[in-house]
Design a protein around this nucleic acid. Structure first.
Lengths: 167, 167
DNA sequence: TTTAATTTTCATTATTTACTGAAAGTTCAA
DNA sequence: TTGAACTTTCAGTAAATAATGAAAATTAAA
């Protein structure tokens, strides 16, 4: 397989993969493109490589910056803005985890706490409902712990080693 | 807050939450409804409670069954089919994890393996590309390990205990 | 068997989500 | 301080996704 074909396939598949996880296709593709670009690239480069409009590129790059996955770089002597993605895949993963936790898991846990405050907690129906809500909260906290552990495992050889024992 | 309001809010939020994770809103809502239903319910019950069409209910329930989250039950003396969801939230979580692994992570890892087979592996560009691909593969395997661990932790008090140490 | 109850399918329609491109905004060299 | 280079915004449009509902298929009681 030719390198260029492999790159193209990587970009396409990354896009498709993202879609399944609620990330828009183009955003995932731009991220993929940046991940495999050896040098910083401009909005125009992205437009050309992915055949998409300027507005689309601009908005999605901004989102990627918001996710902490991409940053602007200044190339001296150049007027245009250039962009790069962090190539450390582990950092990418932990960044995504952190953001999704903050944006989605935390609000969900907060909501579940509110739902715990119902009248007539002793009704049979109410009890069952409260059990489900409380179990989901516990699961959320558990996931939280495990995600933190995942982050720590990368930074800490000891933890990483202990985890491997159970593998 | 009234129990009925809380239930309704739970269903709506669960739907919204699902959307963010690439699960269609209605499917998530039906799952939520089943999670908090004390007795088995029919397609007609779902239609009424969520104000959606018969076809919609039918297709989404079938999907939920495909995910291993819902099952048909027969109520003796009744012609209609009834449905229930597993209320054990931990089982729900591990089931979703298993399915997403099988449907998404595994194919992605397979693809990445294929992308490793490029010509001219010694080109500078090629090397960088291969590094990214290989790193993502490693991350995938790592996630795999951790997800398995998450499943085991529920079944095994010892593992669960060790994990808590690092918390 | 018949036939009425129930489930399933899927072409059509509706909704949601994403993209375009031109206009407005910003920046900075001259 | 002008204006060319570049970035950002967003109304309108396109594409993707989900829902409807009526017809076909299936099931099982009579």
């Amino acid at each position: 397989m030719k390198l260029e074909d492999a790159k193209q396939q990587f970009i396409n598949s990354w896009g498709a993969f993202g879609t399944q996880w609620g990330i828009n296709r183009t955003m995932a593709q731009i991220h993929a493109l940046l991940l495999i670009s050896t040098a910083p690239i401009t909005q125009d480069d992205v437009m050309e490589q992915l055949s998409i409009s300027r507005g689309n590129v601009n908005m999605n790059i901004r989102d990627l910056i918001g996710w902490g996955l991409v940053e602007r770089v200044i190339v001296s002597g150049e007027r245009k803005e250039y962009f790069i993605a962090d190539k450390n895949i582990w950092k990418v993963a932990t960044q995504i985890i952190k953001e999704r936790k903050k944006r989605e898991l935390d609000p969900m846990l907060k909501l579940l706490s509110q739902l715990g405050n119902i009248d007539d907690k002793k009704e049979k129906d109410a009890k069952e409902f409260l059990t489900v809500v409380s179990d989901i909260k516990k699961l959320g906290s558990h996931a939280d712990t495990l995600l933190d552990l995942m982050v720590k495992a990368e930074e800490n050889k000891f933890i990483s080693g202990v985890l491997k024992i159970f593998n």
